[in-house]
Simulated assay, not measured.
Amino acid sequence: MPRGYELGMPHGMPGWVIPLSTYPKTYNGQPLSYVSLAAQKNYHSLYLMALYGNPAADAAFRAEWAATGLKLNMGKSCLRFKTLADIDLDIVTRSVASLSVEDFLATYERIKR
């Protein structure tokens, strides 16, 4: 995990956030989520906010995933899977490690405008 993110429970899900001490001016007064994990009824969801609002990172992630032969079940940032065998943890790890807090906040500010 890049330096500056903290473990938290954003929206009731375990995940990593940008703490309010670093970025207090969020739209809802809650820390900004970076990565979160949720258990749904029929699958698990891994929210990869590094991909949301970053078309180049999203395209690179999807291209790398396609090369694995694994089926990709993903929305804008939500990677859905039933078991760990359904996902490539190396690709997920590289994606999560790829974005510093400063770069994530720059993307957030650009989208917010």
Rank of each mutant, 00 (worst) to 15 (best):
P55F: 00
I91F: 10
A66K: 15
L51V: 12
R94L: 00
Y47H: 15
A59Y: 01
A56R: 14
F104V: 00
E102P: 05
H44W: 15
G69Y: 02
A57G: 05
K71S: 13
E64I: 00
R94S: 01
A50M: 13
M49V: 00
Y52S: 00
L51C: 05
L99E: 15
K71Q: 13
D90E: 14
Y52D: 01
S45P: 05
A66M: 07
S45C: 12
L72E: 13
T83M: 03
P55E: 01
R62P: 00
A63R: 12
L79K: 07
D103S: 12
E64Y: 01
G69S: 01
D88H: 14
H44T: 07
K76P: 04
L72C: 10
A57I: 03
A59F: 01
E102Y: 05
S45E: 12
Y47A: 09
D88P: 08
L105D: 01
E64G: 14
L105Q: 02
L48W: 00
F81S: 08
P55W: 03
L79R: 09
A60G: 02
S77F: 03
A57D: 06
V96H: 07
G75S: 06
M49A: 01
R80G: 06
R94E: 04
I91P: 08
L72G: 13
L46Y: 09
S95K: 05
D86E: 13
Y52E: 02
I91K: 10
S77V: 03
T83N: 10
I87Y: 10
A56N: 05
Y47F: 14
A85W: 03
R62L: 00
L46C: 13
I91M: 11
Y43W: 10
F61M: 06
V92N: 06
I87N: 07
V92D: 09
E64T: 13
C78D: 06
D88F: 08
H44I: 02
A63Q: 13
W65C: 11
K76F: 02
E102W: 04
S45G: 12
L72F: 09
W65N: 09
E102L: 05
C78Y: 05
V101E: 10
L79T: 14
A67I: 03
A59P: 02
S98V: 06
A50D: 04
L46S: 09
A63M: 06
I91Q: 08
A67T: 05
L79A: 08
A63H: 09
T68N: 12
L70M: 10
H44Q: 10
A60E: 15
D90V: 07
A60C: 03
D86S: 08
W65R: 11
T68V: 11
D90I: 04
L72K: 10
L51P: 01
K76W: 07
D90T: 14
Y47L: 11
L72N: 12
L99P: 02
L89M: 15
L51Y: 03
D90R: 14
D88I: 08
S45N: 15
F104M: 00
D88V: 06
M74V: 09
I87M: 09
K82M: 08
T93A: 15
G53K: 05
Y47M: 10
L105G: 04
I87G: 11
H44P: 03
Y43V: 00
